[in-house]
Amino acid sequence: SRHTFEINGERWTVEGVSEELKEILRAAERASNDEAERLLRLALKLI
Rank of each mutant, 00 (worst) to 15 (best):
S1H: 13
S1D: 14
S1Q: 12
S1P: 11
S1M: 13
S1I: 13
S1V: 13
R2V: 14
R2N: 12
R2Q: 12
R2H: 11
R2K: 15
H3G: 06
T4K: 04
T4L: 06
T4V: 14
F5Q: 03
F5R: 02
F5W: 02
F5K: 02
F5A: 02
F5G: 02
F5C: 10
E6W: 13
E6F: 14
E6H: 08
I7M: 02
I7C: 13
I7D: 02
I7E: 02
I7N: 01
N8F: 10
N8P: 01
N8R: 02
N8H: 05
N8C: 14
N8L: 14
G9D: 03
G9S: 02
G9V: 01
G9W: 03
G9H: 02
G9M: 03
E10K: 10
E10D: 06
R11P: 07
R11E: 13
W12I: 15
W12L: 08
W12M: 05
T13L: 11
T13K: 03
T13N: 04
T13D: 07
T13F: 10
T13R: 03
V14R: 00
V14F: 15
V14S: 02
V14I: 12
E15F: 11
E15P: 04
E15R: 03
G16N: 15
V17K: 03
V17W: 06
V17A: 15
S18W: 08
S18M: 04
S18D: 08
S18F: 05
S18R: 04
S18V: 04
E19K: 07
E19C: 13
E20Q: 11
E20R: 08
E20Y: 13
E20G: 08
E20V: 09
L21N: 01
L21M: 08
L21E: 02
L21V: 15
L21W: 04
K22S: 09
K22D: 05
E23F: 08
E23P: 01
E23G: 09
E23H: 11
E23M: 12
E23V: 10
I24A: 02
I24S: 00
I24W: 03
I24P: 00
L25M: 07
R26F: 08
A27M: 13
A27V: 05
A27N: 09
A27L: 11
A27Q: 12
A28D: 00
A28M: 07
A28N: 01
E29M: 05
E29P: 01
R30D: 08
R30M: 13
A31F: 03
A31Q: 03
A31I: 03
A31E: 05
A31N: 03
A31V: 06
A31R: 03
S32K: 09
S32D: 13
S32Q: 12
S32Y: 07
S32C: 09
S32I: 08
N33G: 15
N33D: 11
N33P: 15
N33K: 15
D34A: 13
D34Y: 09
E35H: 05
E35F: 05
E35D: 09
A36Q: 10
A36T: 04
E37C: 12
E37F: 09
E37T: 12
E37H: 08
R38Q: 09
R38E: 10
R38D: 08
L39N: 00
L39A: 01
L39S: 00
L40M: 06
L40Y: 07
L40N: 01
R41I: 12
R41N: 14
R41M: 10
L42H: 08
L42V: 05
L42W: 09
L42T: 04
A43H: 02
A43V: 14
A43C: 06
A43T: 01
A43K: 01
L44C: 13
L44P: 01
L44K: 07
K45A: 14
K45M: 13
K45Y: 14
K45L: 14
L46E: 06
L46G: 06
L46V: 09
L46N: 04
L46I: 14
L46R: 04
I47T: 03
I47S: 03
I47Q: 03
I47L: 13
I47N: 03
